[in-house]
Nucleic acid binder design. Structure first.
Length: 733
DNA sequence: AGCTAAAATGTTTTT
DNA sequence: CATTTTAGCT
C-alpha cells in the first residue's frame, strides 16, 4: 500500500513493526502523529487486524478526535471503529460497562476539582476546622497525589503518607471524603484511573476486554503516572502488543504524578522490546532547533540525543526585553501586525505562550484594543462558567439523585426562597436518617420533615423533571430535558428579568450550550443523559478550540504540547516566572521548567520570539525582574537581542514612586553606556535603514569588536537592539 | 432572605 | 490589582 512510501527509514520501521512491545522515542516535530496514524492504518489495511481490536490513547480529547479523523482520511469510515481515547475516557468506558464487578453503578457522576473542593469545604465545616487554616484546593491536590501513588494502588497503609498538620486530622478528612463520594455515587478524576486498575485485576473482566482488544498504542508516554502505566500494562498483558510513543525531554507533568521512569524503564519492563528513535525534525528551522537543543542540553537527567533539522536555515531567534509587561504585550502585538503586513502571515499562524494563566489578561487587552480576534485556551473554560455549571448540575442531579454537590448547587438557584438555614435543616435530617437530602424532601412525611411552600415547589419541579427524564424517548431526550430545566425552574426567566449586561451574556452562553446539545444529539442519537454528562466532564481545554476561525491563539506552555505554529512568542521569560519561583528550589524543578521551555520553543516552525519584562506588576506591587536563565543558555550567534520601551504611558492614575525611580535609574544607566567608545562603523544619531523595520535613528552603541550592539529607534515606534555584524543596515542621508 | 459594601486572599502548570 | 468571600444592613 502506498501509504508506506511517505515515510523515512525509522518511521517505516516503526509503522511496520507488528507484534511485540515497541518503544518509539520521538523527538519534537519528528512526525510522531504520522507514525501513529499510519501504523494503525497499516495494521488494518495491510496486516488485516480488525479496527475494533486497536486501542490508541492520547492526551486530550482533541488529539483523539484529530487522530480519528486522520485515520478515517487514510482508510475510510471503517476507521471509526478504532478505539481512540484519553486514559480518562478509556477508564470511563471500561468502568461503565464492567464497574459493577467492583461495586460501581454504571450511572456514576464524575466530580471535577471544583466539585471535590466543595466536598472538602463541607467536611472541614463539619469537623469545625477553620477553612482559613488550610486551603481546600491543597487538600484536594494531596488526596489526588496519594490516590494515584503506587503505595495506595497496591493497597498499602497510606497513613504515613498523609501529611501531618498541627491542627487537624488528615486521615479523617481522607476517609470522610471517600464516604461522601461513595454516598453521592461519584468518582473523581483519580478514581477513574485507580478504580480501573483495580477492575483490571479481576481476571474475568480482563479476559473479556482482552478478547476484543489486541493492539495498544500510548501517546505521550513520558507523562503517564503509575495508574495509567498499570492500565496500559494490564490491558496489553495478553498479547504484549504495546506500542508507546514519547520523548523524555518533553515530560512536563511530574507535579501531577507523571513518572518519567515509565518511559526510561520501558526496555526493562518489556525485555524484548524494539526501540526506534525518530530524530529527524521536519517542523522547525535550523536556528530554532539548535537553540532549543542548547537549552535542553543543560539538563543533567536526560538521555543524550540530538535532532537533525530537515528544514534548513531560517530567521534568528529574537529575544526582546521590554521595560514592563504592558510594553511586552505591545511589542508582541506590534510584531504580529508587522509580520502579517510584511510577510503575509494570518492570525492563525501566531501563538502567544506564557507560564501562568494570569499573564493572558494584558495580551487580551491589547488584542481587543487593536481589534485582532483571539482565543484563549484553558483559562475561563466554557463549561466552568456559572450558568453552564448550574444547568449541568440540574442535569447531573436528574441523572443521579445521590449527587449532593449538584443538589446543593441547584436548591436555591435561581433564588427561590430556600435559605442557608433551611438547607442546614435538610442536611441534618439526611444525616440523622442516613439517607440523601433528596429523600428527605421527596418523602418528607416518612421522615416527619416539615416542607415550606418554597421547598414543596422545588420538590414538585424536580420530581416532574426526574419523571420526565425517565419517560422521554432517547433521540430527543437531552435537548428536551435541558429546555424543560431552563423553563420549569425559571432559570432563563430570572435572567431575563434581571436584564443586565451580565445576564444577557449568560443567556447567550446558555443559548450556546443548548445549541451544543442539539449538535451532540445529532452526532450521538442514542446517547443517554449519563453518557452526555460523562463526555462533557472529561472535556479538556484544548477541546474548546474552534478550528474554523482565523484567530490568534493564547495558551499556557503546558497546553502547547503536541501543537505547532509558524510563529511562536514565548513570553514572560524572567527568573521567578519562567522558571517559576515555586519550582526553582530543586534541581528537578528547574529541569522540568527547562523541559517546559524546550516544549515551548520546539512548537515554532519559522519564527521564534522570546520576550521578557524588566518590571512586572503582581499582587499590586512592582517587581524588578531578571532575565530567565534559559535566555542566557541560548547561543548568541543564533539570536538577535532587542528591546522595546512602551512609547506612551499605559499606567492609569498616579504612578508609583518606585516605578518612577526605576525609570530614572535606567535612563541614567543608558546615559553611561551611550558614552562608551566602540568600534562600530556607525555613530549615535545616524539615520539608517533596516530591511524589515525601515528607517530609524541609532540611539545607543555598545560593545566591542564582534559584539557591537546598536539600539535603533524606528519611525514605526519600535526600539530595537541589534548585533551589528548580523544586521544589514544601510546608512540613510 | 437578599442585597450591597468592605475585607480578605490569591498566582504555577491540568487530566 | 482583581476576584471572591464575608459582614452588616435593609
Amino acid at each position: 500500500m502506498d501509504l508506506l512510501q511517505k515515510l523515512n527509514e525509522e518511521q517505516y520501521k516503526a509503522v511496520t513493526h507488528i507484534d511485540g512491545p515497541l518503544l518509539i522515542l520521538a523527538g519534537a516535530g519528528s512526525g510522531k502523529t504520522r507514525v501513529i496514524t499510519y501504523r494503525i492504518a497499516h495494521l488494518i489495511k495491510n496486516v488485516g487486524v480488525p479496527p475494533f481490536a486497536i486501542v490508541a490513547v492520547t492526551f486530550t480529547n482533541k488529539a483523539a478526535e484529530e487522530m480519528q479523523n486522520r485515520i478515517k482520511a487514510l482508510i475510510g469510515p471503517i476507521g471509526e471503529s478504532v478505539m481512540i481515547k484519553t486514559f480518562h475516557s478509556l477508564a470511563v468506558y471500561i468502568l461503565r460497562r464492567h464497574g459493577e464487578a467492583i461495586g460501581i453503578p454504571s450511572n456514576f457522576t464524575i466530580y471535577d476539582d471544583h466539585d471535590q473542593e466543595s466536598v472538602i469545604k463541607d467536611i472541614l465545616r463539619d469537623m469545625h476546622i477553620d477553612p482559613k487554616a488550610v486551603k481546600p484546593s491543597m487538600i484536594v491536590e494531596k488526596i489526588s497525589r496519594i490516590k494515584e501513588s503506587n503505595h495506595y494502588i497496591e493497597g498499602g497503609d497510606i497513613t504515613p503518607l498523609l501529611p501531618k498538620f498541627h491542627s487537624f486530622n488528615f486521615p479523617e478528612i481522607f476517609t470522610q471524603y471517600h464516604e461522601k463520594l461513595k454516598a453521592a455515587n461519584a468518582l473523581d478524576f483519580s478514581d477513574l484511573l485507580v478504580r480501573t486498575v483495580q477492575l483490571l485485576r479481576n481476571k474475568d473482566v480482563l479476559h473479556m476486554l482482552q478478547s476484543r482488544w489486541k493492539y495498544f498504542m500510548i501517546d505521550e508516554y513520558q507523562d503517564t503516572n503509575v495508574a495509567q502505566y498499570l492500565i496500559a500494562k494490564y490491558l496489553s498483558s495478553g498479547t504484549k502488543n504495546i506500542c508507546v510513543v514519547g520523548d523524555d525531554d518533553q515530560s512536563i507533568y511530574s507535579w501531577r504524578g507523571a513518572d518519567i521512569r515509565n518511559i526510561l524503564n520501558f526496555e526493562k519492563d518489556y525485555p524484548n522490546a524494539t526501540v526506534i528513535t525518530l530524530h529527524r525534525n521536519y517542523r522547525s528551522t535550523e536556528p530554532i532547533l539548535k537553540a532549543a537543543w542548547h537549552v535542553i542540553k543543560n539538563n543533567y537527567k536526560r538521555k543524550d540525543k540530538k535532532l537533525t533539522s530537515h528544514r534548513g536555515d531560517g530567521e534568528p531567534i529574537i529575544v526582546c526585553t521590554a521595560n514592563n509587561e504592558y510594553a511586552e504585550a505591545e511589542y508582541v502585538i506590534n510584531t504580529i501586525v508587522m509580520l502579517k503586513h510584511k510577510e503575509g502571515y494570518t492570525n492563525r499562524d501566531f501563538t502567544i505562550f506564557y507560564r501562568t494563566n494570569a499573564q493572558s489578561r494584558i495580551f487580551e487587552e491589547h488584542l481587543r484594543k487593536k481589534n485582532i480576534p483571539y482565543v484563549v485556551i484553558g483559562s475561563v473554560k466554557f463549561y466552568e462558567r456559572k450558568e453552564i455549571k448550574d444547568i449541568i448540575a440540574y442535569m447531573r442531579f436528574i441523572a443521579n439523585q445521590h449527587d449532593t454537590v449538584s443538589f446543593l448547587r441547584i436548591i436555591n438557584t435561581p433564588a427561590r426562597g430556600i435559605g442557608a438555614s433551611t438547607v442546614e435543616k435538610i442536611r441534618d435530617a439526611a444525616y440523622i436518617s442516613g439517607v440523601t437530602e433528596w429523600d428527605i424532601i421527596a418523602n418528607s412525611q416518612t421522615y416527619s420533615f416539615k416542607l415550606s411552600p418554597a421547598l414543596t415547589a422545588f420538590k414538585d419541579i424536580m420530581q416532574k423533571l426526574i419523571d420526565k427524564a425517565k419517560e422521554t424517548p432517547q433521540h430527543y431526550k437531552l435537548s428536551d430535558i435541558c429546555i424543560s430545566i431552563l423553563h420549569d425552574t425559571q432559570y432563563t426567566k430570572s435572567l431575563e428579568e434581571e436584564n443586565s449586561i451580565e445576564s444577557r451574556g449568560r443567556l447567550e452562553n446558555i443559548d450556546a450550550f443548548v445549541n451544543s446539545i442539539f449538535e451532540y444529539e445529532h452526532l450521538h442519537p442514542q446517547a443517554t443523559l449519563d453518557e452526555f454528562l460523562q463526555d462533557i466532564s472529561l472535556l479538556t481545554p484544548a477541546d474548546e478550540t474552534n478550528g474554523t476561525q482565523d484567530t490568534i491563539t493564547l495558551m499556557t506552555v503546558h497546553n502547547a504540547k503536541g501543537l505547532e505554529f509558524p510563529v511562536v512568542f514565548l513570553t514572560g521569560m524572567e527568573e521567578g516566572l519562567f522558571p517559576h519561583a515555586n519550582s526553582s528550589d530543586t534541581e528537578e524543578g528547574i529541569e522540568e521548567e527547562r523541559r517546559l521551555c524546550y516544549v515551548g520553543m520546539t512548537r515554532a516552525k519559522d519564527r521564534l520570539f522570546l520576550t521578557a519584562a524588566e518590571i512586572r506588576r503582581s499582587w499590586g506591587s512592582i517587581h524588578y525582574k531578571e532575565a530567565s536563565r534559559f535566555i542566557s543558555e541560548l547561543p548568541s550567534q543564533l539570536c538577535q537581542f532587542t528591546s522595546f520601551n512602551s512609547s506612551y504611558d499605559l499606567w492609569d492614575g498616579p504612578q508609583d514612586s518606585s516605578f518612577d525611580k526605576f525609570i530614572a535609574e535606567s535612563v541614567n544607566k543608558n546615559k553611561n553606556i551611550r558614552n562608551e567608545i566602540t568600534s562600530s562603523q556607525f555613530k549615535v544619531h545616524q539615520r539608517v535603514k533596516h530591511p524589515s523595520f525601515g528607517i530609524g535613528v541609532i540611539t545607543t552603541i555598545q560593545g566591542q569588536g564582534d559584539n557591537v550592539k546598536l539600539t535603533i529607534q524606528f519611525l514605526n515606534g519600535f526600539t530595537k537592539t541589534f548585533l551589528e555584524r548580523y544586521t544589514p543596515l544601510e546608512p540613510v542621508t
